[in-house]
């Protein structure tokens, strides 16, 4: 259980509580949700906070709490899928570019440069514009927009590792490129990619909400916070809670992700840590060694 305690101490309980409660809501959403998030009940339309609907109901009489829970599911599944897709493709491209170098490296890096100079929202928007708005297309679009970051990151790590003596020795020993890549280079890059991904999750949650807000991501009746917010805008005068609640949910999730990413990055790179945090970590480390 040491790793659990270490995680707890590195990340800190407020962040952990925030992120894990969102994860809990997303995983057990269909169990804890009081109503079907898509079920309309026009006689309850625009109902305010009540015993029946804790957080009220929207213009179509759908339960806001249930829709917020469903929105957590939509967002988190989207974030995880995009990170997996973009991370895998990016790592593949980056490893190949870093290991083989030459023209392959040149091509991959040029495309990364393009991805870096044009903000991801534009790339995603163009993709969705061509293939049509849907949840799947949004996820594909964001994955494509996010690949350059992971390709560049992996390529840097791999290119630095390739010139190290231990990789050279492996080559001399007759290890195949595949063995070197999968047994020795990918694990090195994976650590970096995971650290980066934890810092990236917040941005992705925002991107998903942005696209859905513009009507180019999640389509109704599937619930998503950005889309809930935009469809509540016409009623902002009579029912501001319909706008505020999804906004707060999204902000909290992004804060959680950002704090998590910051903490993990700090733990991985102690030099960036403040003196106070460093001494704290030394103390923890000492305790663990003694235990």
């Amino acid at each position: 259980m040491t790793w659990l305690r270490t995680t707890f101490r590195v990340v800190g309980w407020p962040t952990l509580l925030l992120v894990s409660s969102f994860a809990f809501i997303a995983i057990f959403g269909s169990v804890i949700s009081p109503y079907d998030p898509a079920a309309q009940n026009l006689s309850h339309s625009m109902q305010s906070f009540s015993a029946e609907h804790w957080l009220g109901a929207d213009n179509l009489g759908r339960d806001t709490l249930s829709r917020l829970i469903a929105g957590a599911q939509t967002t988190l599944i989207g974030v995880v899928t995009v990170l997996l897709l973009a991370g895998t493709i990016g790592m593949m491209l980056g490893t190949l570019a870093g290991y083989f170098g030459g023209w392959l490296d040149e091509i991959v890096m040029r495309f990364c440069d393009f991805g870096f100079s044009v903000p991801s929202l534009f790339v995603a928007l163009a993709f969705v514009g061509v293939f049509g708005p849907s949840y799947t297309n949004m996820i594909l679009a964001l994955s494509i927009a996010w690949v350059p970051i992971y390709a560049r990151l992996t390529r840097g790590v791999v290119a630095a590792a390739v010139s190290q003596p231990y990789i050279e020795s492996l080559r001399v020993l007759g290890a195949s490129p595949a063995r070197i890549i999968f047994r020795h280079l990918v694990p090195v890059a994976l650590g970096q990619v995971l650290v980066y991904a934890s810092a990236d999750a917040g941005l992705l949650a925002l991107a998903i909400a942005n696209l859905s807000f513009l009507g180019l991501g999640v389509q109704p009746p599937q619930a998503e916070w950005g889309q809930m917010l935009v469809s509540a805008m016409p009623y902002i005068q009579e029912a501001p809670r319909l706008v505020i609640l999804p906004g707060i949910a999204l902000t909290l999730l992004v804060i959680g992700f950002n704090l998590l990413g910051e903490r993990i990055a700090l733990a991985k790179n102690p030099r960036a840590m403040s003196r106070r945090k460093l001494s704290l970590r030394r103390a923890i480390f000492k305790k663990e060694v003694e235990a």
């Binding site: 909400a209 942005n210 935009v230 902002i236 501001p240 706008v243 999204l250 902000t251 804060i255 950002n258």
Partner: peptide, 22 residues
């Protein structure tokens, strides 16, 4: 700064509309 970086732009815009407009 921590709060603001995590704030969705459209939420900020909606809140500005609500506070200063409505």
């Amino acid at each position: 700064a921590v709060f603001n970086v995590s704030l969705p732009k459209f939420f900020l815009a909606a809140m500005l509309i609500y506070i200063f407009g409505v």
